[in-house]
Amino acid sequence: MATAPPAPPTSRARTDFPLPALIVMACTGFLVIMTETLPAGLLPQLAAGLQVSEGGAGQLVSAYAIGTVLAAIPAAAWTREARRRPLLLAGLCGFLVANTVTALAPSLAVALTARFVAGSFSGLLWGMLAGYARRIAAPEHAGRALAVAMAGTPVALSVGTPLGSWLGSTVGWRWSFAAMTLLAALVMAATRVLVPDASGQRAQTRVSIPRVLGLPGVTTILVVVFVWMLAHNLLYTYIAPYLREAHLALRPDLALVVFGVAALVGIWITGLFIDRALRRLTLVSVSLFVVAGAALLAAQGSLIVALVAIVLWGVAFGGAATHLQTAMGEAARENADVANAMLTTSFNLAIFGGGALGAVVVEGIGARMLPAGLLVLALIALSVVGCGRRTAFPTHR
């Protein structure tokens, strides 16, 4: 008579809310976003240090994004059965090495290679992190666990990137990347101590990538991810020219700090309600994008209106990743890691699209019209979420 398999080592962790482990995961997200966005605030220093134009230095951002897009889905597919903590440590080690090489890079070619490698490890980590966070928490707290694990993103955008830019402009850009190396080492040490292991996907539950894409709700969620994040990046990427052309007496860095703090509020609200109100939270968040877009479009010269709109935009964006990854996890179930890798790819394609489409708007009709694009795209995303009441964003969970 066959005996039951032993319980996985995560069974004890699932009885409580594993806050220390989730904070470590949030620090991982902070590291990933900081590494991605750091060059954008250091273009003059990077250009001078590597003896290239600012446009050439800007390719360090592109190389990272390309690595993420190309690696996310294959990495998730190849590592489905791997245990989660060793995989997390491997990803963090990749960031440690890549940031070290970037800090020491003697030429643009070496730096671009290191950035591509960092982007590839980003694809690996974003593909697994959401599923890992949900896996080590009790099922009734899975959404709240994901909200905590994703908190590193707005903190990095609102505090980390400006701090890294200040460090680079004060003591040199190489020290900023060296700081990322130190952070990676600290997060690795914390992972070994605080993060419980979890099993990978069972072989009998694996399906092919095309079949994951065909699971009910998955394609709908990917469409929402792309359209919603395209709306966000359209304005976020070009916030400086928008503020200037809208005649708003607000510095871009201060606007982004307001946005980041509001995003933290959005994550807190999401953590309170995500496990019982996913559909309503998503509808409210996308609706706030619509309101923010309309307000920013009308805020020509009105600082108060603009600040209120930025706060609403930040609150809506703060919980967006948690809403979308929770929806994807429930739609894909055992294949959530691969599905979240698809989500990561769609997200990064939206970043590309936001930059490209925003450039067309800025050079064509002017940056002051960017909120109109955000408004239209948010309305499209809202209609798709509304139509996904059966599988993607179900009314009853």
Rank of each mutant, 00 (worst) to 15 (best):
A71G: 02
A71N: 02
P74L: 11
A75F: 04
A75D: 07
A75T: 11
A76E: 04
A77V: 14
T79C: 00
T79D: 01
E81C: 03
A82Q: 12
R84Q: 09
R85S: 09
P86K: 11
P86S: 08
L88R: 14
L89Q: 12
G91C: 12
C93Y: 05
C93P: 04
G94N: 05
G94R: 02
G94E: 01
L96C: 07
V97H: 02
V101I: 14
V101H: 03
T102Y: 00
L104W: 10
A105F: 02
P106C: 12
S107Q: 03
V110M: 02
A111C: 07
A114D: 04
R115Y: 05
F116E: 05
F116C: 08
A118P: 03
A118L: 06
G119N: 06
F121C: 00
F121W: 01
G123A: 04
L125Y: 03
L125D: 00
L129P: 13
A130F: 03
A130L: 06
A130R: 11
G131V: 14
Y132G: 10
Y132F: 15
A133C: 10
R134W: 10
R135L: 08
R135Q: 15
I136F: 03
A137P: 04
A137D: 01
A138L: 05
P139N: 06
E140G: 06
E140H: 12
G143W: 03
G143A: 08
A145S: 10
A147E: 03
V148L: 08
A149D: 03
A149R: 04
M150N: 12
M150W: 00
M150D: 00
T153K: 00
P154I: 13
P154W: 08
V155A: 11
A156L: 06
L157T: 15
V159A: 12
V159R: 01
V159Q: 00
V159T: 10
G160C: 09
T161D: 04
P162S: 06
G164I: 14
L167N: 01
L167F: 02
L167P: 03
S169H: 10
S169W: 00
S169R: 11
T170Y: 02
V171I: 14
W173T: 14
W173G: 12
R174H: 13
R174Q: 15
W175N: 12
F177L: 09
A184D: 01
A184H: 03
A185P: 09
A185F: 11
